[in-house]
Design a protein around this nucleic acid. Structure first.
Length: 587
RNA sequence: GCGCCCGUAGCUCAGCUGGAUAGAGCACUGGAUUUCUAAUCCAGAUGUCGCAGGUUCGAGUCCUGCCGGGCGCGCCA
């Protein structure tokens, strides 16, 4: 049971009853009525703004509504006290028994505790990473990868039917460059001279060593059949072969972070199979495509600007600043045209809700994509573009400088190899996605409470340490899950113990809030607080031996305490699962 | 010039979509260790929430205008 949702139901039911009796007017709207834990715990366990929200509709003073409502609430068995405070808040203190029963909820649900049905069965598409298939993933891709993956988990937790997707930009000129670079490595592989064969990699080619095995693989598969042909004859095959190889690389990089997407959608397939034609035909039918001339962009006119009639999409009709071109001057489709077709395909696949995770430098594209989705879906679909800000790498307080030209970009794989998957994932989720993030190598590896990854995992490991220990110290005591679920919890009376339960009871709500805001970082903050409450109780046991989890002379108390910390472990584990971090049992 | 994001304690940041006296951590000071892993905990201070208006019972949160920082601004992806 979600205690806040439960109390809210009660409040609404009572307000309804008051309406029936004529104390309040009939037919009031309760949408804004909130029941939450007050910021200040001294105000009680839960608070409601009911009287304040209803004051206008009822045309009554807040306190005149609050008084009779509080009186009724006080009559509930679980309510110990109902006070009116401030401008008209009703503060409730709930019985300890009520809270102890919430621990039972946690133990019965297991890691499914916090699962919600607010989005039950709603299909949603989450597209993330979508890096160009021209090389391994690097540091710039990591945050979006982790954010997108955690968001997908979070959305699934609240009931969404989530499709995790990657858009392969395999149609642009960068793929020609890739194919030529691989052809170079192919020639190199067939030459007796080895690396010497191609010498310096020419300007405008990809110099990375990761293409050497790709060239070798091609040489092994096809021998010298492409060696003396014109580019036009080998380019297509080299494009396909190279993109496949790069996507294998990308998938392996993602796997090292524990990311596995279900759909890999090829941009090239849109060009090949008529996807662009059909998407634009759909827009054409709606009268949203025309030929026109755009104004030059203000403030930064390109030198070679010349007004030119273009094929344009009326994105300005859907909130964009100007209409956007669909064809390049050479007649080829723009990237935007392909992207329209891609989202058209998503709409056709039945997605009304779509999330795209992009780098902050693509912010300028949001309006036109939103416009396109609205147009393609007859305003039924909704695209939510989430931007991830830059990650700054620090080593010992110094910013790690990287440049693409110098080729010293830190790859995703290097990062994971150095600090580990769990650290990377957790750290990337310790900030709001649209705020810049500093990633400090030294802090990431530090084993102290300053390191949030460690702090949370340590709490989980500590709990399992106790569970291992009790097996040694009290071998005859039953501590399996089934037993703990039925344990008598009435011995849990200390404020630190009840605080821990109350903290756990906010988990389902924390999940829903994070999911609605699409902000998985909130999960990281929640886990930090829960871990903190647990560490506090642990230390209280050092000062007061009566509060220790293992009470060798009192099996019943030990079971109650173990039930408590097992509950904490379950909530920590279910939160870490959303983040994609392993809940370690031993450190 | 235009658009988007950001501005909260000395530093790094939360702030539950409008609630009560705006919170953590770091740093600083003092304290707890024959431990269920002290890898931790407890106690102590600080704020014109960038500025100015507006909306209302109530604004860090919503609206408008400024100021400051970041990103972007036909045909690259």
């Amino acid at each position: 049971m979600n205690p806040y949702a439960y109390i809210r139901e009660q409040v609404i039911a009572m307000a309804g009853a008051m309406a029936d009796e004529g104390v309040l007017p009939a037919g009031m709207d309760f949408a804004n009525l909130a029941v939450e834990a007050p910021r200040d715990p001294s105000h009680g366990d839960v608070a409601t703004n009911a009287a304040l929200v209803l004051t206008k509709q009822a045309k009554m003073k807040p306190r005149d509504i609050a008084a009779p409502l509080a009186e009724r609430l006080a009559g509930l068995e679980v309510v110990e006290a109902a006070d009116i405070a401030g401008p008209g808040f009703i503060n409730l203190r709930l019985s300890d028994d009520f809270w102890r029963a919430r621990l039972g909820d946690v133990l019965r649900a297991g890691t499914a505790y916090g699962d919600s049905r607010i989005a039950a069965g709603e299909k949603i598409n989450v597209e993330y990473v979508s890096a160009n298939p021209t090389g391994p993933l690097h540091i710039g891709h990591v945050r979006g990868a982790v954010y997108g993956d955690a968001l997908a988990n979070l959305l699934a937790k609240v009931g969404h039917d989530v499709c995790k997707e990657y858009y392969i930009n395999d149609a642009g000129a960068q793929v020609d460059v890739l194919a030529r670079s691989v052809h170079l490595r192919y020639r190199e592989a067939l030459s007796d001279l080895g690396d010497e064969a191609v010498g310096e990699i020419p300007e405008g080619m990809y110099p990375g060593d990761y293409l050497i095995p790709v060239g070798q693989a091609m040489a092994k598969r096809d021998g010298d059949k492409w060696l003396d042909l014109d580019e036009a004859q080998w380019l297509g095959e080299f494009r396909r072969f190279s993109v496949d190889a790069m996507m294998d690389l990308v998938r392996a990089d993602l796997a090292s972070l524990g990311i596995e997407q279900e759909v890999f959608f090829s941009e090239e397939s849109l060009h090949r199979d008529g996807g662009i034609d059909s998407a634009l035909a759909a827009l054409q039918d709606k009268g949203l495509i025309y030929t026109g001339v755009l104004e030059p962009p203000k403030g930064k006119t390109p030198e070679d600007w010349e007004p030119r009639p273009q094929t344009l999409f009326k994105s300005s009709q859907f909130g964009d600043d100007v209409d956007r071109p669909l064809r390049k001057s050479d007649g080829a489709w723009t990237y935007f045209a392909a992207d329209i077709a891609y989202h058209h395909d998503k709409v056709e696949r039945g997605f009304k809700q779509m999330v795209d995770v992009w780098g902050a430098d693509h912010g300028g594209y949001i309006k036109r994509m939103n416009a396109a989705v609205r147009a393609l879906s007859n305003d039924q679909g909704r695209l939510d573009v989430r931007l991830c800000q830059m990650v700054r790498l620090l080593r010992g307080g110094e910013v790690v400088r990287m440049s693409k030209r110098a080729g010293n970009f830190i790859t995703l794989r290097e990062l994971v190899d150095e600090v580990g998957r769990d650290v990377v994932r957790f750290m990337m989720l310790t900030r709001k996605n649209d705020a810049p993030l500093d990633f400090d190598f030294e802090l990431a590896m530090e084993q102290s409470k300053d390191n949030p990854v460690f702090y949370v995992q340590y709490a989980h490991a500590r709990i399992h340490s106790v569970l291992r220990r009790v097996a040694d110290e009290m071998p005859d005591l039953a501590v399996d899950m089934e037993t703990l679920r039925e344990a008598d919890l009435s011995g849990l009376t200390d404020s630190a113990e009840l605080d821990l339960i109350k903290q756990m009871a906010t988990w389902p709500r924390a999940v829903e809030i994070a999911a609605q805001a699409r902000e998985p970082h909130r999960i990281a903050f929640y886990l930090n607080e829960l871990a903190s409450a647990f560490h506090a109780l642990w230390n209280k046991g050092n000062a007061e031996p009566k509060l220790r989890f293992i009470m060798a002379e009192d099996g019943g108390m030990t079971q109650a305490r173990l039930a408590l910390i097992q509950g904490v472990a379950l909530v920590l584990a279910s939160g870490l699962a959303i983040m994609g971090v392993e809940p370690v049992e031993k450190m």
